[in-house]
């Protein structure tokens, strides 16, 4: 499952907009990852600061 580096994340929502599964949700100052995350890695790619890490994705 997707790893969120909370010390890097700026909770900006860029990742939320590209998630094809709708598995990400920004709850004020933290990013929540739902079970339906497929670990595809799209969000990790577009993150402006590199806060996300797909464990098995691209």
């Amino acid at each position: 499952m997707l790893k969120v580096h909370r010390d890097i994340c700026g909770y900006c929502g860029c990742c939320v907009s590209v998630c094809p599964e709708g598995a990400l949700e920004l709850i004020d100052a933290y990013l929540s990852v739902e079970e339906k995350c497929t670990d595809c890695g799209i969000c990790a790619k577009v993150c402006p600061v590199g806060a996300l890490e797909a464990r098995h994705g691209k």
């Binding site: 929502g13 860029c14 907009s17 590209v18 709708g22 790619k45 577009v46």
Partner: peptide, 26 residues
């Protein structure tokens, strides 16, 4: 609800932005 656009997605409308068309910004 801005760039995240989750509410419409929950209503069944695909608001997903293609990777090449999201500006990743700082």
């Amino acid at each position: 609800d801005g760039v995240e656009s989750k509410f419409s997605k929950w209503c069944g409308i695909d608001t997903t932005v293609p990777v090449r068309e999201i500006m990743s910004g700082a």
